[in-house]
Structures are given as structure tokens and as C-alpha cells.
Design a protein around this nucleic acid. Structure first.
Lengths: 299, 299
DNA sequence: CGACTTATTCTAACTTTGAGAAGAAGCTCC
DNA sequence: GGAGCTTCTTCTCAAAGTTAGAATAAGTCG
């Protein structure tokens, strides 16, 4: 007979504004200084589904109308919340740039919590100056050769140690490594340098899961369009993708990729810029029936 | 204040034997005739994590040692289980072919529940003879033009209507469409033809989620190797991938793909066949650090 | 008008993929 | 022992897709 348990719904509400991916946070959680994700109870009496429950309380609390939502992960580790054992089902939700901003909650840049994930202005200095040295020390401190080999392999895979590739979708794996070696404030390891801003409980881990999911999904689902207004320019689309992917893309190739995939169509209108005017385009929903993967297959 | 609720852990335990992907089921659930997934309670007192809870009771009940496990999805819809409102966290687990088989539970072929997903011997007849006509009728029955367009688009995307592509990863979306139009026995729509074998509760939906996940993950993670013995031949690997993907692959290209990705290395040993002997190979774990995606990028 | 900015198109080298042919190495059977 | 069969393995070549850079177009600003 299962023992009953409280279930909470955590929301990672994502938007992109001013070319910056942002997440909705409750400023002042518990402890007061840390940002926390908005969370609400799942009430089996009133909510027919988990999705409906999430939409209900986000609308109630933040006054936001959510677009596409999807389940992220269910967290049930002991010690997540010191006060009480809860299970929390985390959701990822998208909101368009045009949605009204609310006073009771704040929008924080995603890379505020994960500065090492933003490669748009080149390789972040902290990767070579902080992360790699710390990871090297951790590998050297392995108790035996077998463990050292495992650590070496893991570090190559997650943080591109010794010239190996930096896989931009491994956001969670990277955060977990930094947590283990004491480079983030939430880590139980005392002292040391702490990267990025901390969040309450295990919320930064949840946001890492979300960012990884977004980056992965970008490639095979038309997900960016949930974050853009109905009509947009190619430059706007590219900036949004770059913001999420955390790296720059080659403009002519990006354009060809998106056009050849039939993902967009011209609206016929134009938008003034400080240079040549840009054609306005819109998403083509029929694209989803024409190709197996309807994402922006960067790389 | 959240209301407490019972939490169950459902397991989709997958293995491939005799070139057939199989799933572990409890024969005789409730009602007695339907196969059910093995499920156990999550006990917050004894289990530190959800993963640990799952491993504990699978070992207890089925005597199986699970390899890699991963969380699939959390289901909380009202009406899933008529007896009581429960939340269930579904997991996907892999077991090697060599693992002992247990008497109390049975291994059923995946395609027993999803005959329309197996394209290894060509396009299944039921696609053109049953599914497409029924989907056509459902589109024609739309109340208005707008809804008809939506249905048309959805049908093209999920079941490849009117010559569009059949996307082999959309297993869940396909099952849900068949459910909605009454082509599976679990559907609330009365009468009609029913495809595949039914399962208890919403368990077929969970297995559909698992199959879709496996097919998707195949492309970017070295997941097949969890299902194979340590040493295997290229033909064995290809057969296993084909079994999961549900379609045939071009042997020379498959070999080149896997070899060029550095996924395998020769063991030096050979295996007798009824033709030319085959070289035995093993998975190369270092591959995970050399490329961003370490899957078998079929398609 | 000239300089600058942003958008858009073009092109050439290179890489990957798709499909088939052909060769290699065993077996069975006459 | 060789013909024919089976399975494994290598090769080839055209088609398609990707990368990177140059060039062009169409506006704004001073």
C-alpha cells in the first residue's frame, strides 16, 4: 500500500526578450535571498490533469497566459526540501515576448544562473580559468586509476576537457559536475569559488534540465516559434535561436537552412531597420507534415 | 496546502531477444485478461530517490538486475485507475538479452501491442487497409472547415496520410490518434475494429511513450549497447537497431556509419556463422567524448 | 553624397548520405 | 575438390547537404 505524499508542480516559464532568454522567478524565497521557481500544489480534487493544474495556478498567481507547455521531469530526492518530503513535477512553459510582465514575479536572464553556457561572445573565460583547473584537480584526486579514467571521460564529455567538443545540450550533466566538485553555491562541498547565481532548493538543477531540453528540442521541433510573435524577421528568428543555443550562427547558412526546410513563409510586409528593410515572415504549420524533423537543425 | 496522494512507480522493462524487442508484463492484471506493466509503490520512508525505489521493487518482484534506467513520464490523469486516484511515475529500464528470464512475469513482443509500428517486412497492410480509411472518415466528420484542416494536418504528421512521411518516433502521437478515433480497444468509442493487443489501464500509452523515446534516443545516445552482450557482431547490432527502429537498414551504410563514428572496436575474436565468419566487436566508451552525439544516426 | 548598417544572394570547396556492385571467406552437397 | 549458397566486408559513385566567405542590395545617418 503506497504511502501518500504531497505533490507540487514547479514551473520553468521561459521567454526571450531583448535577445536574452529569461525565466520567471519568485524573488525572495526561503532563504530570502535566493530566487525560487514559481510552484503550486497539485490538487487531485480540482485538477483533472497535471497540465491543467499547472495552467490553473500559473494563471492565478502570475496572471500569465501560457502557450505550449511540456512536462520536464519529476524530482523526488530526499533532502530536496528540508521542511517536508514532497514530490515535484517540473514543467517547461513558453510565453511570447509580447505577453505582459507582472510585478509580483521577476524575469531573470537564464545565463545569470549559468554564465558558462553563454558562448555568444566567444568561449567564456571562466571555462579555462576556473572550470578546467578545478576539474583537473578533481581528476587528479581520484582514489584509483579506474576512477581517474571514469572522471577523465566524464569531464571530456561534459566540459570539453583537453580540446574535446563542448556539447551545448549537456547543460544538466555540466551543472551536476560543477555541483559535485563544489563550483556552485548549492554544493555541499565547503568553500571555493562559486559560479553563477544560486537558486533556492534544487531549482537551479531544474532550470538546467529545462535549458538542456530546450537546446535539444530546438533541433527537431518548431519550438522557437512559441517564443516569437506571429510575424517576425529572419534576424529576429536567428537572434532568438542564438540566445537559446548560446552561440552564434552563420547568417547566410541559417537563412538557407530555415528556408529550405519550408519552416517559414513571407507575410508580404516589411520592417524598417537602420539598414536595409527586412521581410516579415511567419511560421508555416504545414511544415510539420512535410519533413520528419521540423526543427532548426543547427550543427 | 497540497493534498497528499499515492505515488506508484511503473516500469517499462525492455530487452531484445531473437531480434524482437520485448517488454516485461504481468500476465493477468485487473481485468484478468489484460497484460499490465509491473508496478510498485514509491515509499518515501525507505527510498531515497525515485530511481532507487524502482530498482528496489523490480529486483524484489522480478529478480532482475536492471542496467540503465531513465525516467519516462509522470501520469496523473483522473480516471487512469478507477479504484483510486494515483500519480504514477513511469520508468524505462534496459535488460541484456543474457539476463535470466523469470517465471512470474512474461516477455511480450513490443509489436504485439503496436503491429502498425513494425515496418521491417515492408509497410504493414493495416496502415492502408484500416488506419488510413478510418482516419479519412474522422477527417470528413469534422464539424467545420477549421477543425477539418487541423485533423488533416495531424493525420499527415502522425500516420503519413496522403503520401507524407511516416515519422517512426511519433509512436505516442500515433497511439493517441488511434485511441481518439476508436481503433484501439482501450478507446471509449464503442464498436469498430481494434488493432493490437490491449493492456490494462493506460499501460499501452506508457509503452507507446517508451517506444517513441527509445527510437528518438537511438539517434543521439549509445543506447543499443545496453541491450546487447559486451561482445557482438555488426549483424547483431544492426538487427537490434532494426528491431527497435522497426525498419530495415542498408548494411554497408550502417557499417560505415557505426565505424566512422568510432562507436565500436574489434575484440580480435571471430564468430562462426553459416557463411563467412563475423568479427566480434565491443562498444568504445571513449566515443562519448569524441563527438557531440554518440548515437546511431539512422536516416 | 559618402559612409555605414543590415539584409539578402551567390559560389566554391568540402563532407555526408544513399544505393548498388563486387569481393572475401566460410559452409554444404555432389 | 569445386559449384553454389550464405553471410560478412569493402568499394565506388552520384546526389545531397554543409561550411565559409565574398558579393550585392537597399535602406539610414550625418
Amino acid at each position: 500500500m503506497p504511502i501518500d505524499i504531497a505533490v507540487a508542480l514547479d514551473a520553468v516559464v521561459a521567454a526571450v526578450s531583448d535577445d536574452e532568454p529569461r525565466v520567471l522567478v519568485r524573488p525572495g524565497g526561503d532563504p530570502a535571498s535566493d530566487d525560487a521557481l514559481p510552484a503550486g500544489p497539485f490538487d487531485p480534487e480540482t485538477d483533472a490533469t497535471l497540465d491543467a493544474g499547472l495552467r490553473r495556478w500559473v494563471t492565478e498567481q502570475a496572471g500569465l497566459e501560457l502557450g505550449h507547455i511540456e512536462q520536464l521531469y519529476t524530482f523526488g530526492d530526499r533532502g530536496r526540501d528540508a521542511r517536508r518530503r514532497v514530490l515535484s513535477v517540473a514543467y517547461l512553459a513558453f510565453v511570447r515576448e509580447s505577453e505582459p510582465r507582472v510585478a509580483s514575479v521577476g524575469w531573470r536572464a537564464w545565463y545569470h544562473y549559468f554564465p558558462w553556457e553563454d558562448w555568444r561572445d566567444g568561449r567564456p573565460a571562466i571555462v579555462d580559468e576556473v572550470i578546467h583547473p578545478a576539474v583537473d584537480a578533481w581528476i587528479a584526486a581520484a582514489p584509483d586509476a579506474d576512477e581517474r579514467r571514469r572522471r577523465e571521460r566524464r569531464a571530456r564529455r561534459t566540459v570539453g576537457l583537453r580540446g574535446t567538443v563542448w556539447n551545448d545540450t549537456l547543460v544538466l550533466e555540466r551543472y551536476e559536475l560543477l555541483w559535485e566538485i563544489g563550483l556552485v553555491a548549492e554544493s555541499p562541498i565547503p568553500g571555493g569559488v562559486h559560479l553563477g547565481e544560486r537558486m533556492a532548493f534544487d531549482h537551479r538543477r531544474i532550470v538546467a534540465t529545462a535549458l538542456g531540453r530546450v537546446r535539444g528540442a530546438l533541433r527537431w521541433r518548431p519550438l522557437v516559434f512559441e517564443l516569437l510573435p506571429p510575424d517576425f524577421t529572419m534576424a529576429q528568428l536567428q537572434k532568438t535561436v542564438e540566445a537559446l543555443a548560446g552561440r552564434r550562427l552563420h547568417t547566410p547558412n541559417f537563412r538557407r537552412l530555415v528556408e529550405d526546410a519550408g519552416l517559414i513563409e513571407p507575410t508580404g510586409a516589411w520592417r524598417q531597420t537602420t539598414g536595409r528593410p527586412a521581410a516579415l515572415v511567419r511560421f508555416r504549420p504545414e511544415a510539420t507534415t512535410e519533413r520528419p524533423d521540423t526543427g532548426i537543425a543547427i550543427r
